[in-house]
Computed example of a mutant assay.
Amino acid sequence: MRIGAHVDAGDPLAEAAARKAEVVQFFLADPKGWKAPEEHPDADGLRAAEVEVYVHAPYVINVATTNNRIRIPSRKLLLSHATAAARVGAKGLIVHGGHVGKGDDVAVGFDNWRKTFAFAAESGGFATPILIENTAGGDNACARRFDALARLWDAIGSYEVGFCLDTCHAHAGGEALLDVVDRVKAITGRIDLVHANNSRDAFDSGADRHDNLGQGMIDPELLVAVVRAAGAPVVVETPGGVDGQGKDIAFLRDRVTA
């Protein structure tokens, strides 16, 4: 099992070495902006590296929304990030499940996800596998509650789509971690990546605030159990830079592989 961290995009391989990470995840553009991704200066090195690479799509992407001024650019931006992620040898492009607006029917959001994959298929499909990530908040979210996730997979499961399980998001979103892996796999059939994060907030708070694994509101041993059961590569998106993330990686490596 490979364990790593979300790092700064400037020199991901150096960041990985500093943390003793076997996996790196990073952004290829401002996560809060609509700017198209740029060519990474070390694309060749990343493709050739033994470290596994994942790219996280910008937070602004919301292909589920009924708002045309957000949905249409989101589709195009997701496609361009998938192409850019392929150039750095990424094994997956992680994107949040998105949501519809207050008063909108969430079923429209599921269908908009289906249309997103159909839109990509018209140009040959996504160049990098899309990994949809469960989210922490929102009553109109497509991937917060697992009953909604099941409806989303009914709409898009026929496409080659993967899943990223975030432990903080599940906890804050009101989904118990004790049997979370079994319940996710019963819906999606797979877990391609785990974001192993503790939560600064209480169960079902709806708050997306990550904490280091030995801190926060989730029993650290429960996080270990989730990681072990999932059997997928792991990324910590925790605070503290090299020191904080390095300790989280060592914590998981010592316990998961024991």
Results as ranks from 00 to 15, higher is better:
residue 195 H to N: 05
residue 92 G to F: 14
residue 128 T to L: 08
residue 201 D to V: 00
residue 169 H to V: 05
residue 100 V to K: 01
residue 108 V to A: 15
residue 203 F to A: 01
residue 89 G to W: 11
residue 116 T to P: 10
residue 118 A to W: 02
residue 112 N to F: 13
residue 108 V to W: 04
residue 152 L to W: 00
residue 107 A to W: 13
residue 146 F to C: 00
residue 166 D to C: 08
residue 151 R to T: 01
residue 122 E to Q: 14
residue 91 K to S: 15
residue 160 E to G: 07
residue 190 R to D: 10
residue 200 R to K: 09
residue 156 I to A: 01
residue 174 G to K: 02
residue 99 H to G: 08
residue 109 G to I: 08
residue 150 A to S: 02
residue 95 V to I: 15
residue 96 H to K: 09
residue 93 L to S: 12
residue 141 A to D: 03
residue 162 G to H: 05
residue 97 G to L: 10
residue 198 N to Q: 01
residue 171 H to A: 05
residue 183 R to A: 09
residue 94 I to C: 14
residue 200 R to P: 06
residue 103 G to Y: 11
residue 200 R to Q: 06
residue 135 T to V: 15
residue 103 G to R: 06
residue 138 G to H: 11
residue 202 A to V: 06
residue 196 A to I: 07
residue 106 V to F: 13
residue 182 D to Q: 10
residue 135 T to L: 08
residue 192 D to T: 04
residue 175 E to W: 01
residue 166 D to A: 07
residue 165 L to I: 07
residue 132 I to Y: 08
residue 193 L to V: 02
residue 203 F to Q: 01
residue 200 R to G: 05
residue 177 L to A: 03
residue 106 V to S: 12
residue 185 K to N: 09
residue 87 R to Q: 13
residue 131 L to T: 03
residue 109 G to W: 06
residue 113 W to I: 13
residue 200 R to Y: 01
residue 104 D to I: 04
residue 176 A to D: 13
residue 89 G to F: 11
residue 146 F to G: 00
residue 200 R to T: 05
residue 175 E to P: 04
residue 193 L to S: 02
residue 147 D to P: 10
residue 114 R to C: 15
residue 138 G to T: 11
residue 140 N to E: 11
residue 201 D to N: 04
residue 200 R to F: 02
residue 180 V to S: 05
residue 100 V to R: 02
residue 100 V to W: 04
residue 133 E to A: 11
residue 114 R to W: 13
residue 150 A to K: 01
residue 151 R to F: 00
residue 120 A to T: 11
residue 88 V to F: 12
residue 96 H to A: 14
residue 130 I to Y: 09
residue 196 A to H: 01
residue 202 A to L: 02
residue 91 K to Q: 15
residue 88 V to Q: 08
residue 149 L to K: 00
residue 144 R to Y: 10
residue 127 A to V: 04
residue 153 W to Y: 03
residue 146 F to L: 12
residue 159 Y to A: 10
residue 175 E to Y: 02
residue 156 I to Y: 01
residue 123 S to R: 12
residue 100 V to H: 05
residue 116 T to N: 07
residue 134 N to D: 14
residue 158 S to C: 05
residue 87 R to S: 13
residue 121 A to Y: 07
residue 174 G to N: 07
residue 193 L to G: 02
residue 194 V to P: 05
residue 165 L to T: 07
residue 169 H to G: 10
residue 111 D to R: 15
residue 175 E to R: 04
residue 160 E to N: 12
residue 92 G to S: 10
residue 183 R to I: 09
residue 88 V to W: 11
residue 140 N to S: 14
residue 182 D to K: 10
residue 145 R to C: 06
residue 107 A to E: 15
residue 159 Y to D: 05
residue 118 A to T: 08
residue 185 K to E: 12
residue 122 E to V: 12
residue 171 H to G: 08
residue 184 V to C: 11
residue 162 G to V: 11
residue 149 L to Y: 00
residue 135 T to K: 01
residue 159 Y to G: 05
residue 125 G to H: 09
residue 180 V to I: 15
residue 176 A to I: 03
residue 197 N to L: 00
residue 159 Y to T: 06
residue 162 G to Q: 03
residue 111 D to P: 04
residue 131 L to P: 08
residue 90 A to V: 13
residue 110 F to L: 10
residue 187 I to T: 02
residue 110 F to A: 09
residue 195 H to L: 04
residue 111 D to Q: 15
residue 119 F to W: 15
residue 160 E to A: 15
residue 107 A to C: 12
residue 185 K to I: 08
residue 128 T to Q: 03
residue 164 C to E: 06
residue 91 K to D: 12
residue 164 C to M: 07
residue 95 V to G: 13
residue 101 G to H: 08
residue 93 L to V: 14
residue 154 D to E: 09
